[in-house]
Simulated scan of single mutants.
Amino acid sequence: MSLHLELKKEYNRLNDTKKYDIIIERLKERGVELVDIAKITYDLQKPYVKDVTLEICLDHVDRVILKREVQHAVLVGIELDVLAEKKLLSEPLLSMLLGDYGLFGVDEVLAFSIVNVYGSIGFTNFGFVDKSKPGIIGRLDTEGKEEGKCNTFLDDIVGAIASAAASSIAHKYAQ
């Protein structure tokens, strides 16, 4: 491999690590810790992987967030929620995001870009958590409607990361 390609590969790895750190900080600013996501992953995989632990789930959440295409989706979704809260989007988009309009669907489509990295298991897990709203997802969904916050994208992003991590675990530990 040429020196140029080696340097480019190292730059991309470091840049993904920097974006990972930014994402962790932005999630914390929005009230989401990685352990919150890992708990959902754990609940999704406990019936299927006997020896799964919260630590394993947290490791797989990290793996998901380190993926470049996941990072891009997370950054876009969080940014749109923040811009809506600051009323920096034009109508009718602003009202649709602030009201978490049920037929909007773009938030789920963005989440699909995360779960599709891990195949059909992630996709079906996402459908389940999107409907049932376990753990932090339910809090984000309610908080967005009651406290003037906009979590239209964030609740789906969290569900997608948890679902993708569950799929990653299923692929690794399937028997």
Rank of each mutant, 00 (worst) to 15 (best):
A174V: 15
D141E: 03
A166S: 14
G105L: 15
L97Y: 13
P92H: 09
G31D: 03
S2W: 10
D51P: 04
E108K: 12
N125D: 11
A165H: 06
V35E: 14
I40T: 00
N116G: 07
V106C: 03
A165M: 05
A166K: 07
V32N: 12
E147M: 08
L94K: 08
I24M: 09
L154V: 00
A73G: 08
L88D: 05
E25Q: 11
K133S: 01
S167W: 01
D141I: 01
T41M: 00
I157Y: 02
D156V: 11
D156K: 09
E143I: 01
E108P: 04
V117F: 03
E6V: 09
E29V: 03
D107L: 02
S90N: 11
L14E: 15
R26K: 13
T41K: 00
L154I: 00
K149V: 07
A73E: 13
D62P: 02
K28R: 15
D43M: 03
I78T: 05
V129Y: 13
D21L: 06
I23M: 03
D100V: 15
F112H: 13
F128Y: 10
K19G: 12
Y20R: 14
I40H: 01
E147P: 00
T152A: 07
E25R: 15
G138F: 07
K28W: 06
L80P: 00
K39P: 00
R26P: 05
G148W: 02
I169P: 00
I22H: 10
K9S: 05
D155Y: 05
L27G: 02
L154K: 01
V82D: 04
F104Q: 07
Y42E: 05
T152K: 08
K28A: 10
G31V: 02
L14P: 15
G105E: 13
A166V: 05
L75T: 11
I121R: 04
A170I: 07
V49D: 09
G77C: 15
L110N: 05
K28G: 05
E10I: 10
S95C: 06
K8D: 14
I78W: 13
G159A: 04
S132K: 13
V117N: 08
K87H: 11
N12K: 14
H72K: 14
R68V: 03
V106Y: 15
R63G: 13
I56A: 01
V115N: 04
R26Q: 10
T41W: 02
Q71V: 02
V52G: 00
Q71C: 06
I136Y: 02
L7T: 11
